[in-house]
């Protein structure tokens, strides 16, 4: 654990909570892509299956549980509780164009051909492009609300801080994970937009 990793995790947590609170306080999910939020729930579900198989630390377990819980709560607010405010007409990105190629890539390029490892790889690839429905929606409607911009900034900052974390870990621990790094660079570039 280094300072970039910790601030990256906290920035990620801040992004998730900003979005959840925004929807809760305004009682509206206008301008938010439900499809991106479903993809993020899928990302966390497929990545954190190791909750069932291995224990790393209390920090690790609690953050994973919080991320999964918040992402499902967000999906629930958008599609159930405040679905009257959900702007489905503008949320028209075809997610199968992301999920199918990403699934194929995860089967082809992974560290180990085992179910859990392929699902972890799938989640890494999917996370890097999961924001595209949200960016597509903003491009269709024109402007994003200020809070949505804060949400996107925190999410982008999180991945940028992880890049610094990987540089740190490469120099000080010899740690190097090509799949995470390439996907992380792609993801950071998308958020720079």
């Amino acid at each position: 654990m280094n300072v970039f990793r910790l601030t990256g995790d906290l920035s990620h947590l801040a992004a998730i909570i900003i979005l959840l609170l925004k929807i809760w306080k305004t009682r509206s999910c206008a301008g938010i892509s439900g499809k991106s939020q479903i993809l993020f729930a899928l990302v966390f579900t497929t990545r954190y299956l190791d909750l069932l198989t291995s224990f790393i630390s209390l920090y690790n377990t609690s953050m994973k549980v919080i991320y999964i819980g918040c992402s499902y709560a967000t999906v629930y607010l958008i599609y159930m509780k405040f679905r009257a405010t959900y702007d489905g007409n503008h949320d028209s990105f075809r997610v199968e164009f992301l999920v199918v190629p990403v699934g194929g890539l995860a089967v082809l390029i992974n560290h180990d051909f085992s179910p859990l490892e392929i699902l972890w790889t799938f989640s890494i690839y999917l996370e890097s492009v999961a924001i595209l429905p949200q960016l597509f929606m903003i491009s269709k409607t024109g402007e994003a609300e200020t809070i949505t911009t804060h949400y996107l900034f925190c999410l982008g900052l999180y991945r940028a801080l992880y890049l610094f974390n990987w540089i740190w870990r490469y120099y000080f621990e010899g740690f190097f994970d090509m799949i995470a790094i390439v996907a992380g660079v792609v993801q950071t570039v998308l958020y720079c937009d």
Partner: peptide, 10 residues
């Protein structure tokens, strides 16, 4: 390569 058990990052 990396095994899933070693994925300590979130």
């Amino acid at each position: 390569g990396m095994r899933v058990e070693e994925h300590d990052e979130l």
